[in-house]
Design a protein around this nucleic acid. Sequence first.
DNA 1: TATTGTTATACTCTATAACTATA
DNA 2: TATAGTTATAGAGTATAACAATA
Lengths: 159, 159
Amino acid sequence: MTQTSSPASTADTKANTDTLNRFIGYRMKRAYMVVLDDLMKTLDRMGLRVTTFSALSVIVENPDITQTQLAHALRVERSGVVVIIDDLELSGLVTRGRVDGDRRAYALRATPKGEAKQKEASEAVSAHEDRVFSKLTPQDRTTLSTLLTTIERTGSLET
Amino acid sequence: MTQTSSPASTADTKANTDTLNRFIGYRMKRAYMVVLDDLMKTLDRMGLRVTTFSALSVIVENPDITQTQLAHALRVERSGVVVIIDDLELSGLVTRGRVDGDRRAYALRATPKGEAKQKEASEAVSAHEDRVFSKLTPQDRTTLSTLLTTIERTGSLET
DNA sequence: TATTGTTATACTCTATAACTATA
DNA sequence: TATAGTTATAGAGTATAACAATA
């Protein structure tokens, strides 16, 4: 018996996604994708990507951090950091300085231009968050932050 | 003047990420990654990936849905659906049936094996969510769901 | 002409492993 | 021996564009 069907069952109707929507993880993905999409557009306007903005921010906050330390902070492999710093260095936003007493490592530091760019980008990202979270009250945002932190911490407890 | 530095400033200390942590989007990513990591492990045990599980679930819920409709529901391109359905069809979980009156389209349907697999996987995913959200009360989960839905809807209002 | 599914292609992100130079 | 950074490579995941069959 060959499977055939009337297209009427789904052709003019939107598909149900109730099953998936019951999963909080699915809701997290959908919401995160909306935020990420707008964030990428925001950063693209200033010549940054999510990874370079994140790295630049951590470097500004932690002058002379090494690439390995940065890899830990960003939770990526060291090899991934190389590409990110290559980008930031080429853009003149970050320098690879030498570390006293260890010629293997680099001391990453933001240039004045890098600090200015980070500040500017940070303000743009704040504006972006005001946009995408505009329907959330300050109370809502605090609640959301707390819940997300709890989830992240639960994950780090795994065996 | 050559840049040098004492490694003492960061060598034995964990990097500060306060700047990034102030952004809710960053918290969303971190929490989502924790959830996604456990979800992928969970689905891998039953031979599924996130995309195939999602597609299978939508097909079970919407018998005879076409690939284009599925692409809309999953928010991916049609070309991406081809690969997903190839996988599910090869695994004997989904069939590409013919549509009456339109020989271009396929009517996707889960096989009995596919329905069983979806049910089994769905239970595994529920167990996974009970794990990763174990520190959240039922009230917390409802709150989180509502906030995430609000964010997603805000995104769809963009011009 | 428009649409469905398909293919080829490319791009991003990230991980793994092997290498070098230092420690 | 171990570590910091590097390189090459590969694997997901996804998007774009062009195509054949059909509408």
